[in-house]
Design a binder for these strands. Structure first.
Length: 626
DNA sequence: TTAGGGTTAG
C-alpha cells in the first residue's frame, strides 16, 4: 500500500501526461469490469487506513492527471466504486477548480447505484455554469424518477440550475416538492427560492417566500432588496435599508451597502447615498475595495465626481474596477481629458484595462468630441489588449463619429459590425442626423428602427426636428399624421429629484404631487423671470404639440421643468438642484435650465439618458451639445 | 469527518 501511494505524495517529481493517464484509467476501468462483474460497491470496502489515505490524497489533487493516476490504482484495487471514496473523487473532479463536467458525468453514469450525495454533487456542479444548468435540472428529474428522495441541498442546487437556465416551470415543480418533503423551514433553501422568483420577475412570489421565513437574516433581506431592484421597485429598495436598520432582526452588511448604493445611483439619490456612506464608515466597511468601488460609481452617477474622487484618493489598493469606475465617472461628467489621463495613469500603475475600462475611455472621447483619440483607442483596444468590441464600444464610436458629422462613416461602422445593432445604436445615429440635419440618412435609420419594431415617439420627434430644421413642412405634417394614425403615444418620460433622502418623481403635466399647486405657481413665476432674461419657448421639440396642436392654449410642462420648480420651491437659495431624467433632455428644457442657473444663481445638474448636464451661471458643461 | 448551503462592486 505504502509503495503504491507514495508516488502521489510527491507528484511533481514525475512527468505527467494527462493523455497517458486518461488511457491508463480507461484500461483499468475495463480491467475492473472484466474481473469484477458484480461491481457491488459494498463488497469492496477498503480498510479504515486505506480509506483515509485515499481520501486525503484525492483532496490534495490539483491537477487532473494526478486524479486520473489515483483512479487507475483505485480501479485496480477495486476501491473506486466504494461510495465514500467515489464521492470524494467525484466532488474533486466535478467542482472547481477542476470543474471537469464531461469527465465527471462519464464516471457518474458508470456508478452502479448513485445515492443522494452523489446526485447533489453532480447537480451542484451543473448549477455553477450557465451553459449546462439545464443538465442539472434533468438530472434532478432523473433522480426523482429513480425513487431517491431529495434533501434540502438537492432542492437548492436544482433551484440554482433553474435560475441559470431560466426555467420557471421546473422551479415551480421544485417548490412543490420542497413543500411535499417538508423542507419549508430551511431558511437557506427558501432564500435561494426567493432568488429564483426574483430572477423570474415574480416579485410578489419572492416576497411571499420572504414572509414565510421564520428566521430572516441579512442575506434574506439582501435577496429581497436585489429582488426589488430587479423588478422595478428601486425606491422601495431604499426603504428596505431603513427598515433593516430599524429592525431588531439583523443589520445591513457590506453586500446590503453594495446593493443600496446601486439603487441610489439609479435614482440619483445623492443624499441617501451619503447616508449609506456614513453607515459604511461606522461599520468599517470603507476598507473593502468592492464597497469603495460602488461608492465611486454612486457619486459619479449622482453627478458628484469630486466626492467620487475623494473616495478614489482615499483607497490604499485599487483594481481595474476602481479605475474603470473613476474613468467612466470623469467621462460622463464632462471631464474627458481627465478620464484619458486617468487611463494612462492606471497603466503606469501596472493595471491592465479590460472591456469596461475601454467603454469608459471611449465614452470620454465621445463626450468631449475627441474623434482622433477615439479612433486610436478603439484600434489599440483590439490590437494591443485583445478586447473584442462589444455593443457599448460600437455605440461610443457611432456617437463619436456621428457628433463629428462623419455620418456615413458611422453608418458604415454599424453595417459592418459582427454583432446585431440594437435600437439604442440606431437612436444614437438618429440623434447625430438631427444635429447635422442629415435628412436622407435619418430616414434610412428610422426604417431600421421600424423594422425592429423598436421605434418610440421620441424617434419620430427627432425625425420631425430634422424636417422642420430644413423647412420641409409637408413632411412635418406627414409624420404627425403618421404618428396619429399609428396611435403612437409619447413615452411618459419621468424626472426624479431627491429631497432629504426622499425621491420625488414627476411626469409631464403631473398633478399627483401633494404640493402640485405651489409647484405650478413657482413654475409660473420662474417662467416670468426667465422671459425677462430672454428665454423663449422652443416648440420644435415639444412632444405634446405632436399629438394635438389645438391644445396649445394650456401650457404643457415637461417633467424636468416640474422637478426643477420643485427644487427651487423646496430647497434654500444656493442649493444645487439635481434632476435625473430617463429620456433625453429636449432643447427647450436645456435652455430653461441654462437661463435659470444664471437668473436664480443655482447650480443645476441634470442626468439624462445619455449624459450629465452641469448648468452654472448660464452655461452648460456639455457645450450646448445635447 | 466522507460534501454540500443562500445575497454581492465598474
Amino acid at each position: 500500500m505504502k509503495t503504491v501511494y507514495s508516488i502521489f505524495l510527491s507528484p511533481s517529481r514525475h512527468h505527467f501526461s494527462p493523455l497517458r493517464f486518461h488511457s491508463e484509467a480507461a484500461a483499468a476501468l475495463e480491467y475492473h469490469n472484466q474481473h469484477h462483474p458484480l461491481s457491488n460497491p459494498n463488497s469492496i470496502a477498503p480498510n479504515a487506513y486505506q480509506e483515509k489515505t485515499i481520501i486525503s490524497l484525492t483532496k490534495s489533487c490539483t491537477h487532473k492527471s494526478h486524479l486520473l493516476l489515483i483512479q487507475t490504482h483505485l480501479l485496480r484495487n477495486f476501491h473506486f466504486y466504494n461510495p465514500t471514496i467515489f464521492l470524494s473523487f467525484l466532488s474533486r473532479c466535478a467542482l472547481p477548480p477542476l470543474h471537469d463536467l464531461s469527465y465527471s458525468h462519464k464516471i457518474f453514469s458508470q456508478f452502479p447505484a448513485p445515492n443522494v450525495s452523489l446526485y447533489n454533487t453532480m447537480i451542484r456542479a451543473y448549477s455553477l455554469s450557465n451553459d449546462v444548468a439545464k443538465k442539472g435540472v434533468l438530472l434532478y428529474q432523473e433522480m426523482l424518477r429513480s425513487g431517491i428522495s431529495p434533501n434540502a441541498l438537492t432542492s437548492m442546487f436544482a433551484t440554482k440550475c433553474c435560475i441559470k437556465f431560466g426555467s420557471l416551470f421546473s422551479g415551480l415543480q421544485i417548490h412543490a416538492r420542497i413543500l411535499k418533503d417538508g423542507h419549508q423551514s430551511d431558511s437557506l433553501l427558501l432564500t435561494t427560492l426567493m432568488d429564483f422568483y426574483s430572477s423570474m420577475e415574480k416579485g410578489r412570489e419572492a416576497h411571499k417566500v420572504f414572509d414565510e421565513i421564520s428566521l430572516r437574516d441579512t442575506v434574506a433581506w439582501n435577496v429581497l432588496i436585489s429582488c426589488y431592484m430587479r423588478n422595478g421597485r428601486t425606491r422601495d429598495a431604499l426603504g428596505l435599508f431603513d427598515a433593516m436598520r430599524n429592525s431588531n432582526e439583523c443589520q445591513p452588511d457590506e453586500v446590503t451597502c453594495l446593493l443600496v448604493l446601486q439603487a441610489c445611483a439609479g435614482l440619483n439619490a445623492l443624499e441617501f447615498g451619503e447616508q449609506v456612506h456614513n453607515y459604511i464608515e461606522e461599520r468599517g466597511f470603507h476598507n473593502m475595495m468592492n464597497v469603495c468601488n460602488s461608492l465611486i460609481a454612486m457619486y459619479s452617477r449622482c453627478g458628484c465626481v469630486e466626492k467620487a474622487y475623494d473616495v478614489f484618493r482615499g483607497m490604499v489598493n485599487r483594481d481595474v474596477v476602481t479605475w474603470s469606475a473613476m474613468i467612466s465617472g470623469l467621462a460622463s461628467n464632462g471631464y474627458g481629458r481627465d478620464a484619458i489621463e486617468a487611463f494612462e495613469e492606471m497603466q503606469r500603475a501596472g493595471l491592465v484595462p479590460d472591456d469596461q475600462t475601454f467603454t469608459g475611455v471611449l465614452s470620454a472621447c465621445s463626450h468631449s468630441g475627441l474623434v482622433d483619440e477615439g479612433r486610436i483607442f478603439f484600434e489599440a483596444m483590439k490590437r494591443d489588449f485583445g478586447v473584442v468590441p462589444n455593443i457599448h464600444h460600437y455605440g461610443c464610436m457611432v456617437d463619436i463619429l456621428g457628433r463629428a458629422g462623419l455620418l456615413e462613416e458611422a453608418y458604415d461602422l454599424v453595417s459592418s459590425m459582427r454583432i446585431k445593432p440594437d435600437a439604442a445604436m440606431w437612436r444614437t445615429l438618429l440623434g447625430a442626423c438631427r444635429i447635422h440635419r442629415h435628412l436622407a440618412l435619418g430616414e434610412r435609420v428610422i426604417e431600421h428602427l421600424i423594422e425592429m419594431k423598436a421605434q418610440e415617439a421620441g424617434d419620430y420627434v427627432l425625425l420631425l426636428n430634422i424636417y422642420s430644421s430644413v423647412g420641409n413642412w409637408e413632411k412635418v405634417i406627414e409624420v404627425r399624421k403618421l404618428m396619429k394614425d399609428k396611435g403612437i403615444q409619447t413615452t411618459p418620460a419621468s424626472s426624479t429629484v431627491e429631497l432629504k433622502g426622499q425621491v420625488h418623481e414627476f411626469v409631464a403635466d403631473d398633478v399627483s404631487h401633494p404640493q402640485k399647486k405651489k409647484i405650478y405657481e413657482t413654475l409660473e413665476e420662474i417662467n416670468q423671470q426667465l422671459r425677462i432674461a430672454g428665454y423663449v419657448v422652443e416648440i420644435t421639440s415639444d412632444l405634446h404639440n405632436v399629438e394635438d396642436k389645438s391644445k396649445q392654449s394650456a401650457p404643457s410642462y415637461h417633467s424636468e421643468k416640474l422637478a426643477i420648480a420643485f427644487g427651487v420651491l423646496a430647497t434654500p437659495p444656493g442649493t444645487t438642484i439635481r434632476v435625473a431624467k430617463d429620456l433625453r433632455i429636449c432643447v427647450d428644457c436645456h435652455n430653461f435650465a441654462k437661463i435659470l442657473s444664471a437668473v436664480y444663481n443655482r447650480k443645476v445638474v441634470i442626468r439624462d439618458r445619455n449624459r450629465f448636464h452641469h448648468f452654472e451661471e448660464g452655461r452648460c458643461s456639455c457645450n450646448d451639445y445635447w
